[in-house]
Structure formats: structure tokens, C-alpha cells
Design a protein around this nucleic acid. Structure first.
Lengths: 130, 130
DNA sequence: CAGTATCCCGGAGGATACTG
DNA sequence: CAGTATCCTCCGGGATACTG
């Protein structure tokens, strides 16, 4: 891992579009939630759905499929009745979990600060508008 | 900052919706790009637009306004002709830049791996379909 | 249980034109 | 230059019903 390099001319870098596209996926909130919930131990489909809370099964399916395609997650089917499917992070997925959970932690740590700032900012706008 | 805690029952945590909402914003690809480009030095509007590359001016405006509202960015107007506006990270914004750029770095470091996995995954699907 | 298949809507986000 | 105002398109994502 390099140091937080002050960017030079990244907009002109040829890989910029691709990085951007991957960022769009990895930064997706359902992706972040899913990987967070998979860190630590494998989970089953509906278990994940419950843990994440507020996600539709279709979005969960899509998210997991995309993660599988990207090599972040493995899908293991146990041919039992009823069927049982277990999702687990790959090594690659686990390596992503680290920066992702640091981001999540940052949000948790600064939630109050952000909301306070929003409130005062909104209040100021209101008083200016008249 | 805590350690990457294996999640217990976050889906049921009352703050979960708020964290989720903030994550949705901070994980947004334009937000990540903007903060990344502002790390290191302040930037002007069109400078940012060029650096980010591929963003519409409206999206840049919206992104910067949201960041200002959240207290991540300051907007300084120099009443010159032509007008000049400088955006800079606040302390809060700079503290977010760290995990965000680590995420960006992770993407850069693993771009090849991801794309290789995608290709083989897609190829396997193709051969199975017939 | 773990999905797939449809339908549908609101909003993200681009393109363009105008303004101080 | 640094925006604001409009218009329009596309698709993220929810709800629901069905299947192996």
C-alpha cells in the first residue's frame, strides 16, 4: 500500500475510468454493507438479508452476484432440503474489508459531528432566505 | 479508531439507517473523487472538473454543496473578475480523506486481479450456457 | 430456503442554454 | 469563471408473484 499520494493529474490517467467504475461498485452502500456483514464469518442468504436490514432480496442477489464475479465472494451450495447456500469472503474480499470497515468506522465516529454541521448549515440557510 | 470488529447484530442497531445513509453519500464515487482531488491542496471549480474528468458541472456543484453542508469542504470566494472560487478540505474532510484514499489505493492495487477474475468468470458462464 | 421473473417508479445524472 | 435553470433519459432499487 502506498502513502496517500497527493494526486498529480489523475483525470488524465488512462485507467481513471476503470478505477472510477470499480469505485462506483465498491463504494456502493449495499456492497459495503454486504462485505461488512461477511467479515468474520460466512453467512447464508436470508441471514445476510436480515443482518443488512432494508435491502430487497433482488438487490441482495445482484450485489452478491457482482461480488462473486469480481472474485470477492464465494458461493457454496449444500444440496440439502431445504437448500442451503453459504457466502464467504475470498482473500481478495477480506483484503477489501479492511479499508471498507475503516470507512464505516469513520462514519460511526463522526456521525454526530456531521449531523451537527448539517443542522447549523441548514439553519443558516433558513435565516438568510428571508 | 476501533479494530475491524466482526459485526454482531448491526441490522437491528437504531443508528444503522443513518450510518447507511452517510455511507451512501461518502461511498458515492463522485464524492470519493472530489475529496481525493482536494487532498493535498485547494482547487478551483473548473480545475476540479478537469481533474475528476467525466463529471458534469451540475453533479460537481451538487457534490460540492453536499460536502460543504456536511462540513467536509469550505468554499472561499475571491471577488475578482472573473470570479474565483477555491474549495478546500476542512479538518473533518481531511480525516475522511485517509480512509477514502486507502480505498482508492486498494482499487488501484487490485484492478488487474479484479478484471482477470471477471474475465474468467464471464468465460466460464459462456461455456456453460450451451 | 434461495432464489428468478416482472412490473414500476423516483431520482441520479448528463446535455444544453443562460447569467453575474 | 463559476455557477443556476431546464429538460430528458436511464436505471437503481422496491414490491410482488412464482419456482426448484
Amino acid at each position: 500500500m502506498h502513502m496517500p499520494t497527493p494526486p498529480k493529474e489523475p483525470g488524465t490517467h488512462p485507467d481513471c475510468r476503470k478505477v472510477n467504475e470499480i469505485l462506483g461498485r465498491m463504494g456502493d452502500k449495499w456492497t459495503i454493507m454486504a462485505i461488512t456483514m461477511l467479515a468474520g464469518e460466512p453467512r447464508r442468504f436470508n441471514e445476510l438479508k436480515r443482518l443488512i436490514g432494508g435491502i430487497s432480496q433482488q438487490m441482495l442477489t445482484r450485489t452478491l452476484k457482482a461480488l462473486e464475479r469480481d472474485g470477492m465472494v464465494t458461493r457454496k451450495v449444500y444440496p440439502t432440503i431445504p437448500p442451503q447456500v453459504e457466502y464467504a469472503l475470498t482473500d481478495l474480499g477480506r483484503s477489501l474489508a479492511t479499508p471498507l470497515m475503516q470507512l464505516a468506522m469513520w462514519v460511526l465516529d463522526h456521525l454526530g459531528e456531521i449531523e451537527a454541521h448539517r443542522a447549523s448549515h441548514d439553519a443558516r440557510l433558513l435565516s438568510e432566505d428571508r
